[in-house]
């Protein structure tokens, strides 16, 4: 774990750059992480997924599975992979300032 500066804010991140304290997150941080991970501009659709991930995590303490994401976020699986080609669940969690999803699904 290390403290780093994202969008001029000091945040605690793990080895892979996931925020370890969701409370340190804000939208500017989200946009900076997205840019760094190959998404130049977060669209409304990206935000829909990111917010769903974040809210679900804050409510249940667990990030949703890709199955739940596809069924319940309002964005179907195919589009999820178009929005986040390098892994929707992982990347949306990173951008949303929550820990890396631990599930296998």
């Amino acid at each position: 774990m290390a403290t780093t500066l994202i969008a001029d804010a000091p945040v605690d991140v793990d080895d892979e750059g996931f925020l370890t304290d969701p409370a340190q997150w804000n939208e500017a941080i989200a946009e900076a992480i997205a840019r760094e991970n190959g998404i130049p501009q977060l669209t409304d659709r990206h935000w829909l997924v990111v917010r769903f991930m974040r809210e679900r995590y804050l409510a249940t303490g667990m990030a949703p599975s890709i199955r739940a994401l596809g069924k319940e976020s309002g964005v179907p699986v195919k589009e999820l992979y178009e929005l986040f080609p390098k892994g929707p669940a992982k990347l949306a969690a990173k951008i949303g300032g929550i820990p890396k999803p631990k599930g296998c699904i």
Binding site: S65, I66, R67, G70, P76, V77, K78, Y81, I105
Partner: peptide
Amino acid sequence: KIDIPPVPEFVELLGDSG
């Protein structure tokens, strides 16, 4: 219970995942 879909749904999910 651990959110693993039945085979037909899983096949569809994988297809959609690329």
